[in-house]
């Protein structure tokens, strides 16, 4: 552990370069993923909804085969940042994104980049389970079909359902409507639907907030298994969940602008999860994780 004096003077996110360490060493020192292992990165990300500045200057890198948790009070822009990672914000007419979001070093907001291609590699699971009003089978088969994946569809469906531990529960009623499943099963179906198209990164926006503790813990176990093959970014309000499953945690907050009073979200601190929860640098992080946040 570092001496207290250096931790407290360390800048919350980016510290000045000293020039002597290698980039990897510097990253490790600040609790960031090794540059060689970065799968996605936000560089100077600003998001606006109309004239409302929702997220200010976020610099954040996500490690490959890691689970990165985004935490912070309601309205601080966690979902907004997450939705920038696969260009879901394109669907909101008023949303405008500035800065860069890179995936494998390529800016996904670049001119020549097709958002459809982006979303095929970077999947998303939503807060509210949103299965299609179709059969369980068709829910999984829908994605592979539209992207023209070849291979045995039955096999693809079975594999996705097995990975999410749903197979034994639903194998006898694949033709039933997905709305007949419980909330927890629906959410696992949505995760299965997402992995059926073999994405590289999975974004999850409060995937367990509508679920009971048993379903929640199943999904948490699932996330830990999935990170062997995928990189995962999860937004959660459940601090224990972030502590249990994630490798790194980014803490966001929203501070009112002095002139306009707008609550613009920003990244406060990003570090290894263990350090965020045991030894945060920033006072605001400490207050939030210890429940002292107003």
């Amino acid at each position: 552990m570092e001496p207290a004096s250096t931790t407290s003077t360390r800048a919350p996110v980016i510290e000045p370069l000293t020039g002597v360490e290698t980039a990897a060493e510097r990253a490790r020192h600040r609790g960031l993923p090794d540059p060689a292992d970065v799968v996605m990165e936000c560089l100077g990300l600003n998001v606006f909804y109309g004239s409302f500045h929702a997220v200010h200057d976020v610099n954040l890198s996500f490690g490959r085969n890691e689970i990165t948790a985004l935490i912070g009070p309601s309205g601080c822009g966690k979902s907004t940042v997450l939705r920038c990672l696969n260009r879901m914000n394109d669907l909101i007419p008023s949303a405008r994104v500035e800065g860069e979001v890179t995936y494998d070093g390529i800016d996904i907001y670049g001119r020549a980049v097709d958002p459809i291609e982006v979303r095929r590699r970077i999947g998303m699971v939503f807060q509210k389970p949103n299965p299609f009003p179709k059969s369980i089978y068709d829910n999984i088969a829908y994605g592979p079909k539209i992207i023209g994946m070849d291979g045995d569809m039955d096999h693809i469906v079975e594999r996705a359902l097995r990975v999410t531990a749903l197979w034994d529960e639903v194998k006898d009623r694949l033709d039933d409507n997905a709305y007949g499943l419980s909330g927890g099963q629906q959410q696992r179906l949505c995760i299965a639907r997402c992995i059926a198209v073999s994405p590289d990164v999975i974004l999850m926006d409060e995937p367990c907030s509508a679920l009971d503790p048993v379903s929640t813990s199943r999904i948490e176990d699932l996330m830990v298994e999935l990170k062997e093959r995928y990189s995962i970014v999860i937004v959660t309000h459940n601090m224990q969940q972030a502590a249990r499953v994630s490798d790194r945690t980014a803490f966001f907050t929203a501070s009112p602008d002095e002139t306009t009073g707008n609550r613009t979200g920003m990244l406060v601190e990003y570090d290894k999860t263990a350090r965020i929860f045991t030894n945060p640098v920033d006072k605001r992080t400490e207050d939030y994780i210890s429940g002292r946040f107003g």
């Binding site: 669907l91 299609f132 949505c190």
Partner: peptide
């Protein structure tokens, strides 16, 4: 949510609309 679910799988707008 249904639109977003399909869009997140990489469905184009036309596909989301029609399917």
């Amino acid at each position: 949510g249904l639109r977003e679910g399909a869009a997140a799988l990489g469905a184009s707008r036309m596909r989301v609309a029609l399917r």
